[in-house]
Simulated scan of single mutants.
Amino acid sequence: MQILVIYCHPRGDSFCAAQRDVVTTSLQAAGHTVTLRDLYAEGFSPALSAEERGRYHDVPDNLLGIEDHVADLRAAEALVLVYPTWWYGLPAMLKGWLDRIWAPGVAFSLGEGAIQPALTNIRRIAVVTSYGSPLWLLWFIGWGDYRLFSRGIRRLCAKGCRLDWLYLHAMDRRTRPELTRHLDRVRAHFSRW
């Protein structure tokens, strides 16, 4: 399977980077083709410029400057996003990636009064994330990033697109053995893909 991994964290020595490495090596060991996009390392610009917004609905002119990201997204059969959850949502860089790359003509089309999915090549999405919050607070707040993917993003992909959610809560209070056990769970999960 062709898998696109989007990694979003500014530090190469973070626990998030360790998760990224486990994801990519596990998928490759299982025989998949992995394309890794490291948004910070690439210097990806998350801000939608006034010019880009002006041509947002002008397909295909809305793809100018983002063609490589769009090509990777269109080639993928599965999408894995590895990021830390900050302030109960996506890091600004990752939110900007969605704003700029999941554009009309790429992720959806507007027709017949409804949004039509356009990324029907993507049959599976996985999120690997960590939260500083305790579990009870995530339930109280309502899992904002999970709802975004389960109710919104997934609808723009193949019918019946599967969503896998691998998370670690209370990240800042975890011991080394707990972190290692989480990485082992991530490894086992992606080894079964």
Rank of each mutant, 00 (worst) to 15 (best):
D72V: 12
L81N: 05
G65Y: 11
A126M: 01
W136Q: 15
D99F: 01
V70Y: 11
T85V: 13
V128L: 01
L137G: 04
R74W: 05
L135C: 12
P134W: 10
A126Q: 01
L63R: 09
R74H: 12
I115M: 09
S109A: 15
W97L: 11
Y83T: 03
R124D: 03
Y56D: 04
A75D: 09
P117R: 03
F108G: 04
W97R: 06
W97S: 03
P60A: 11
T120P: 01
D58Y: 01
D61Y: 08
G105R: 05
K95S: 10
G113R: 04
G54E: 08
L110W: 09
P134K: 15
W102N: 09
P91F: 08
F44R: 05
L135T: 15
Q116Y: 01
D58I: 03
L135K: 15
W87C: 03
G111D: 14
I115T: 10
W97D: 05
Q116P: 03
V70Q: 14
Y83D: 04
R53G: 06
L79I: 10
L73E: 03
P46K: 14
E42V: 00
A78D: 03
A78I: 10
Q116W: 02
S130E: 07
M93G: 09
K95P: 12
M93I: 13
D58E: 10
I122P: 01
T85L: 07
M93C: 14
V59D: 09
V59N: 07
R124Y: 00
L119E: 02
S45N: 13
P91I: 15
V128G: 00
R53D: 09
V82T: 11
P60H: 08
A118T: 02
Y83G: 03
R53K: 05
A107I: 12
I101A: 04
T120M: 06
A126R: 01
R100H: 08
D61S: 07
R123I: 04
G65L: 11
V106N: 02
S133R: 11
G132A: 10
Y131E: 01
L110N: 12
L119N: 02
V106S: 02
L63S: 08
A75Q: 05
G111Q: 14
R55Q: 08
A71Q: 15
I122A: 10
A92T: 15
P84S: 12
A118N: 07
V70L: 15
S133H: 13
W102M: 13
P60W: 04
A92Q: 13
Q116S: 08
E77D: 09
T85I: 12
L79N: 08
A103Y: 02
L73M: 10
L137S: 12
L63D: 09
R74Q: 15
D68K: 13
E51N: 02
I66L: 12
A50D: 05
D72A: 15
W86E: 07
G43T: 03
D61I: 12
A118K: 08
T85A: 12
A126F: 01
A92D: 10
A92E: 13
P117T: 03
I122G: 05
P46E: 12
K95I: 07
K95Q: 07
I66W: 04
G105V: 02
V128D: 00
A76D: 09
L63G: 02
L73C: 08
F108Q: 10
S109L: 15
